[in-house]
C-alpha cells in the first residue's frame, strides 16, 4: 500500500518534470498529473506484485501456507525499507495547499471537493472489482479457485496464473487505497500500510475471509466505527477499536457477518 502511494509520488514528480500541465481541475487540489500518476502507480504496483510472485511466492507455494506467511513478512519489511531508504521516514507531500470544505446545500454536511473525488474513485473501484469478478473469465476463475483449488485444477484452470492475477489486483487495489489516503491526508509515509493493517484485517474478518463483498461492507463498518469511537476515546486508539472488533467477531462469529462457509 505504501509502495503504491510512493510509486504515485514518483510518477507525479516525473510527470511534473515532463511538463504535463499541473493546473488543478476545477475545485480539486490536483490536476492531470495526479490522475495519470494514479494509474501509473497502480500498474507498477501490480507489476511489482507479479515479479515478487514469480521470483518468490511461486516457488514457496509448494512448501505450504506458513512458509508463505513468513516470506510475506520479509517482503513487507523489504518494501517498506526500500521506500524508507529512498525518501526517509518523514512524510512526503503530494501537495500542500489547504482546501476548504464546502457545504452541500441539500444534505447540510460540509465536505471537501477532494473528498468527493475520493468517494467517487472508491465507488468506481468497487464497481470495477464487482464487474471483474462477475463478468470476466479470470474473475470467475478467481472465485472458482477460492471455492475449491483442486477442482479448479482438474477443470484445466491454470491456478498458478490465477493466483498471480489475484496478487497483482490485490496489490493494485492496495496501492489505490494508499494514494486515496494520501490525497485525504495530503501526505504519505512509509509505514502508512502498517498503520492500516489492523483495520484492514478487521474489515476482512468482519466480512468473512474470502468474501470480497463482505470485505467492502466490513471496510465501511470499521471506518465508521473508528471515526465514531473518537468521540469517546483518544484518537490514538483508533487501531485498537479495530482490534476489539476482531476479538468480538472471533468470539461470536469467526466466519464473518455474512459468512456461509
Amino acid at each position: 500500500m505504501s509502495l503504491g502511494a510512493f510509486l504515485a509520488l514518483i510518477s507525479l514528480t516525473l510527470l511534473r518534470g515532463l511538463g504535463i500541465p499541473g493546473t488543478p481541475f476545477g475545485p480539486l487540489s490536483f490536476g492531470l498529473p495526479m490522475i495519470l500518476a494514479f494509474f501509473i502507480a497502480l500498474l507498477l504496483t501490480g507489476l511489482a506484485a507479479i515479479i515478487i510472485d514469480r521470483i518468490l511466492y511461486l516457488r514457496l507455494r509448494r512448501t505450504g501456507p506458513i512458509v508463505l506467511l513468513v516470506a510475506s513478512i520479509g517482503v513487507s519489511f523489504f518494501l517498506r525499507n526500500i521506500i524508507q531508504f529512498i525518501w526517509g521516514p518523514q512524510p512526503q507531500y503530494y501537495f500542500k495547499a489547504i482546501q476548504i470544505a464546502r457545504k452541500i446545500p441539500l444534505l447540510g454536511i460540509r465536505i471537501k471537493p477532494d473528498e468527493v473525488f475520493i468517494i467517487i474513485v472508491a465507488a468506481l473501484l468497487v464497481i470495477g472489482l464487482h464487474f471483474f469478478l462477475q463478468k470476466t473469465k479470470t474473475g470467475k476463475a478467481m472465485r472458482a479457485a477460492s471455492d475449491n483449488m483442486e477442482l479448479a485444477r482438474v477443470s484445466g484452470i491454470d491456478t498458478e496464473k490465477v493466483i498471480m492475477w489475484t496478487w497483482a489486483i490485490g496489490a493494485s487495489l492496495a496501492a489505490a487505497g494508499g494514494i486515496l489516503a494520501g490525497i485525504e491526508d495530503k501526505f504519505i509515509t512509509p509505514d502508512m500500510g502498517w498503520q492500516m493493517l489492523l483495520p484492514i484485517f478487521a474489515a476482512v474478518i468482519l466480512g468473512g475471509i474470502g468474501n470480497p463483498y463482505g470485505a467492502m461492507a466490513g471496510g465501511m463498518i470499521i471506518g465508521l466505527s473508528g471515526e465514531i469511537s473518537t468521540a469517546f476515546i483518544s484518537t490514538a486508539y483508533k487501531p485498537a477499536v479495530a482490534f476489539v472488533i476482531i476479538v468480538i467477531m472471533l468470539l461470536i462469529k469467526p466466519r464473518g457477518l455474512f459468512g456461509t462457509r
Binding site: A144, L151, S155, R261
Partner: peptide, 20 residues
C-alpha cells in the same frame, strides 16, 4: 467429494468446466 464450485452459479460452474 467437493466436486462443484458452491459459490458460483450453475452456469458459471459449466463455464469453468470449459475454461480452456
Amino acid at each position: 467429494t467437493d466436486n462443484v464450485f458452491p459459490s458460483l452459479t450453475v452456469e458459471e460452474n459449466l463455464e469453468m468446466g470449459a475454461f480452456i
